[in-house]
């Protein structure tokens, strides 16, 4: 048990000691939130079924957090650790590699969760955040989204030989989704063609799923199916291609 605790503590400390990761995962979504709040406010809007812009963007920015950690944070640190032979040094100890993996997943999940909670708390105090769903649904939708994106993250880490390659692959996958998924810009202002593309992007379904459970309008079965599929593919292919050294 002790090794799980120690490993998780270290992974968490290392995350908080990495200023760039900390900025993009935690501070950047908060900055966007505050900026949106200042520009658009949070008045009820028929576009969002009586909810405000901020009410719809808290789930959206949560998707950004999940995407950043899953597609950039996890692949880069994992591939780096392999490239620097940190994983290899661990393999020379009796610690099973599952301990490393479990701690890594747990810590990243908790960081994503804390990132979401930070957005919620700030939005409550600064912009009178509204909530129409059930917390348990939000937690479930959030968990499904993290599973799907983390699985793909380890898959990228498995394919990429080095930390740099993982970084490039992750960014190429993530950056278009950041703008075309409704996570940062509302989809309904986009042209029809872009919306078409958007509907195929996994992050779009995180946004849709989280917004739906947030507004209390139920589970988006299409999005659930998409993310479940992504989880299955990510875990299956990931465990096939992933190598510790």
């Amino acid at each position: 048990m002790n090794k799980y605790i120690q490993m998780s503590l270290i992974q968490a400390k290392l995350f908080f000691r990495e200023p760039i990761a900390l900025f993009f995962t935690i501070a950047f979504p908060v900055l966007l939130l505050v900026m949106y709040g200042a520009i658009f406010g949070n008045d009820p809007n028929p576009n969002f079924g009586g909810f405000g812009y901020i009410d719809s963007q808290v789930p959206g920015l949560t998707a950004i957090i999940v995407g950043t950690i899953g597609l950039i944070g996890i692949p880069v640190t994992t591939a780096n650790n392999r490239e620097q032979k940190v994983l290899r040094r661990f393999m020379a100890t009796p610690m099973p590699s599952t301990v490393y993996l479990a701690a890594d997943i747990l810590v990243n999940f908790v960081i994503a969760f804390l990132g979401m909670m930070l957005l919620i708390v700030i939005a409550i105090f600064a912009f009178d955040l509204r909530f129409g769903g059930r917390w348990i649904d939000v937690l479930a939708a959030f968990s499904l989204s993290t599973i799907a994106f983390f699985a793909v993250g380890y898959l990228i880490a498995g394919v990429a030989q080095t930390g740099r390659v993982a970084q490039v692959v992750g960014q190429v996958a993530f950056l278009p989704m950041m703008f075309l998924s409704g996570a940062t810009l509302p989809l309904n202002i986009m042209p029809e063609g872009v919306q078409q593309i958007s509907s195929w992007l996994p992050l779009t379904h995180v946004v849709k799923l989280l917004q739906a459970v947030w507004f209390g309008s139920g589970w988006e079965t299409g999005s659930v199916a998409m993310l479940l599929g992504m989880s299955v593919v990510g875990i299956t292919v990931g465990s096939l291609v992933f190598q510790w050294e």
Partner: peptide, 22 residues
């Protein structure tokens, strides 16, 4: 081992604690 590294920002005492737990 030849050519292994650890995380840049892990402290010496943390390394020893971590490995002790294994």
């Amino acid at each position: 081992l030849q050519q292994t590294q650890l995380a840049e920002r892990i402290k010496v005492w943390e390394v020893l604690n971590l490995f002790s737990s294994f």
